[in-house]
């Protein structure tokens, strides 16, 4: 079986007037099915650019990118949009839900753009299923501003999963969340990963990266290290520990 992602000598150069900025300068990367990869790096390391290329939002200047066996490195705007729709699910730092639109309608959004378009009832069924999957079953008719940050991110995850993508891409998924909610979201990622969903996540937080199975650290547009996570964190355990510390601080010792 081919890897979900295969990057071969990927370069990305931005032209800024006369200056050429080499954001990514020759990255080789393979992600197999069922992996949970955290991409780390300081700002300016090229991780965002790499993420945009992985997410088919941008094209590499050089190199080859095979996504689920399809060479997407030379596709046009519309073809990339179709690939994003069929193969990728996005989770963003700022949730990026449509306000004034219910959770269910947000989750349905990718299905409006699928070819052939899905019928209304099937859209609703699949959206509901995705909502169940992230544990938000009864809140489908809530608007984003009626939901907590963690709940909004769950809606975003449900939207990312509703088209059953080959890869779930998360860009700083815990950046706007408190530590407890961050662990909850990581727990959701770990559960999904155990069900076989491939996840690539960009983060700059080391402890968040420890929930993944593998970390890729970037610097100056190149991969510095690429290794499996030792002492991997389990979100369930961490959540219990957090609760324990809470109880300790709240209960006066006596």
């Amino acid at each position: 079986m081919p890897p979900i992602i295969q990057l071969e000598k990927i370069h990305k150069t931005y032209r800024n007037g006369d200056m050429a900025v080499h954001a990514v300068r020759g990255v080789d990367l393979q992600i197999e099915k069922g992996e949970f990869v955290a991409v780390m790096g300081a700002s300016g390391s090229g991780k965002s650019t790499l993420m945009n290329i992985l997410g088919c939002l941008d094209q590499p200047s050089e190199g080859r990118y095979l996504l689920d066996g399809i060479d997407v490195s030379r596709l046009g705007r519309d073809e990339l949009a179709e690939i994003r729709n069929r193969k990728l699910g996005f989770v963003f730092q700022g949730f990026n839900l449509l306000s004034r639109t219910t959770a269910i309608e947000n989750i349905e959004l990718p299905m409006f753009y699928s070819r052939p378009p899905l019928r209304g009832r099937e859209r609703r069924e699949r959206a509901n299923k995705a909502l169940q999957l992230v544990g938000l079953g009864p809140r489908g008719d809530h608007h984003p501003n009626q939901l907590s940050g963690g709940q909004q991110q769950r809606v975003a995850i449900a939207r990312a999963l509703v088209m059953q993508p080959a890869l779930l891409l998360a860009d700083e998924p815990t950046g706007n969340l408190d530590s407890r909610t961050s662990i909850e979201i990581m727990g959701a990622f770990q559960e999904l990963n155990e069900q076989g969903i491939t996840i690539a996540m960009v983060t700059h937080e080391l402890d968040v990266a420890h929930y993944a199975r593998r970390t890729v650290i970037m610097r100056d547009g190149l991969i510095l290290t690429d290794k499996p996570v030792e002492s991997r964190l389990d979100a369930k355990v961490e959540l219990k520990r957090l609760e324990a510390t809470h109880t300790q601080t709240l209960t006066p010792s006596g």
């Binding site: 997410g55 705007r77 519309d78 949009a81 179709e82 729709n85 996005f90 990718p110 409006f112």
Partner: peptide, 11 residues
Amino acid sequence: IRMAVGAKGRD
């Protein structure tokens, strides 16, 4: 957002 989830320019 719409483009990220697969809306084409035409959509």
